[in-house]
């Protein structure tokens, strides 16, 4: 039982937190800007590398400099939106998708160009589980990741429900034409969407960097599970994205648990397929997702 908690459930929750934060941005851009943003993963990578440089420059803990990295990344993303996406605002969605695909490759190349392709680390060495909590094995990083995710999600919730811009975002996501008719400035909503998506992506990337290491493909590798989480939760539904992220993260880890007998239920070599399978199943049987998002 302890093994189940320590080695399957806790890593699953940590992974789920990372997916969830990343999926919020994908879900919001899909809901408000109406296209699937392929560059989201590499936006995340960019934020992690900015954090890495800040850590090397200041010597502070990555989580302390992450807010500054979020601001910087948001600035860059807003600049990219102005240059690359704004001209396509009224174009068919496929053009935006292709633009984001190109942007994804460009961001990654720029990262590889300036920071190099070597493996880097936000923190070196290993972290033993906290003594006080044994036999539950929680490492300090995992507590920080889960705690910070909860805080960020509460912040997202407050922004979406209590602020004017948050309400405007939800309204635009639900029905853009109606929202524009009621006098909501869609450009402001779009900028807010980018800011929120990019900041949360940076947070997710930094958490992943803390748990593993930093490399130029890290964000791209998360793209599929993040899309799966957004679809599972329902497109355009930030709460759905959170639920979807957690479900996919936990499902990936638990799929390797020896539920029957002593061998893993699913060979861990196919863990990555779990997100795929859930996504495909959702698209077939419940395309609007768990939280009744938009259907395409």
């Amino acid at each position: 039982m302890m093994a189940f908690l320590n080695f399957y459930l806790i890593p699953g929750v940590v992974l789920g937190c990372i997916y969830a934060l990343g999926a919020i941005g994908i879900s919001l851009t899909f809901g408000i800007l109406r296209f699937s943003n392929f560059a989201h993963g590499d936006t995340m990578t960019l934020g992690v590398y900015i954090t890495l440089s800040l850590v090397q420059f200041s010597g502070l803990h990555p989580l302390l400099v992450a807010p500054l990295a979020m601001v910087l990344t948001t600035g860059i993303v807003l600049g990219l939106d102005r240059t690359f996406y704004k001209p396509f605002r009224t174009s068919p969605a496929i053009m935006l998708v292709i633009a984001s695909f190109g942007l994804m490759l460009m961001i990654r190349s720029v990262i590889q160009f300036f920071w190099g392709v070597q493996l880097q680390a936000l923190q070196t060495g290993i972290q033993m589980p906290l003594e006080a909590l044994l036999p539950v094995r929680f490492s300090e990083n995992h507590l920080l990741i889960i705690g910070a995710t909860v805080l960020l999600m509460m912040a997202v919730h407050l922004v979406l429900t209590r602020t004017k811009i948050g309400k405007a975002m939800r309204a635009t996501s639900d029905n853009p034409e109606l929202a524009a008719l009621t006098g909501i400035d869609t450009e402001v909503v779009i900028r807010a969407t980018w800011a929120m998506g990019a900041s949360l992506a940076v947070a997710a990337g930094v958490f992943l960097g803390l748990d593993t290491h930093v490399e130029t493909m890290m964000g791209f590798k998360l793209l599929l599970p993040m899309f799966a989480a957004a679809i599972l939760g329902g497109i355009g539904k930030p709460y759905g994205a959170v639920a979807g992220g957690l479900v996919i993260g936990i499902a990936e880890e638990l799929s390797a648990y020896p539920w029957i007998g002593t061998t893993p239920l699913l060979s861990p070599g196919y863990k990555g397929g779990v997100a795929f399978a859930i996504m495909v199943a959702m698209l077939i049987w419940k395309p609007q997702g768990l939280f009744r998002g938009r259907q395409f």
């Binding site: 320590n6 080695f7 399957y8 890593p11 880890e253 390797a256 648990y257 861990p268 070599g269």
Partner: peptide, 15 residues
């Protein structure tokens, strides 16, 4: 066998 590029291998290691 394990799938490369995952964030955690604790489950695999336990098995």
């Amino acid at each position: 066998v394990h799938e490369p590029n995952k964030a955690s291998y604790r489950a695999e290691i336990t098995t």
